[in-house]
Amino acid sequence: MSQKESSIPSEKITAYVDNELVEVERDEIEARIGNDPKLKEICEAQKQVKKLVKECVLLEKAPVHLRARIRRSLDQAQIVPGFLNLISDIFRYHAVKGLATTCTILVLVALPWFPAENLTPSSDDVIAVKLQVIEGKLICVDCEQLHSEHINSVKHSDFHRAGLKTSDGTIWQFLDYGKGSELIHDFSRLNATMHVEGKLINGDHTLNVQSYQKI
């Protein structure tokens, strides 16, 4: 058996067994099976396991009293219209999450009513530790994340969101405000090496950019 023949990922073999491959890929596997007895054997074994599970796994029937029990509980239940239904359900199982969700929704609803100037950070809003100068390459934060997770085939969108990647691999994001907005949204600078000066925000690898310079 050649190396190439044995290199079919097991997930693909599983998808073949489940008839989930597109026609071209299925034909490709079938062609390989014809020349590779071991691959054929692996497929057959998986088909056999699938068949056994289907035929032999016993699902017990519901006890007779369960239907009556469920009917009683439904008699006390009501279909609550959408939004309230969701909130009450979250509260039922996760009180803290429910509270957090409700607060978030209220904030999101209230946000548009505030004047725009209130949303821009003043120097008091930013918990600045000190002014830092960081050197690195301007990259798209989303592209970089997908790349690091080896999801290269997924296209996140046609737009990029710039951040700064330092030589040790740390990725800094910018506050979307003032000079930071210029860096985030001007894709022409992507891949350029930059000096960016700014204030640290909450120690969270986010900078409130004061100035920047291409090296």
Binding site: L66, S73, L74, I79, D89
Partner: peptide, 22 residues
Amino acid sequence: DPVEAEDLVQDTYLRAYRFFNK
């Protein structure tokens, strides 16, 4: 666990019913 399985199915039906409008 049979007791937990019954509770799980009951909860499932209850939630399904309450969300049936979805």
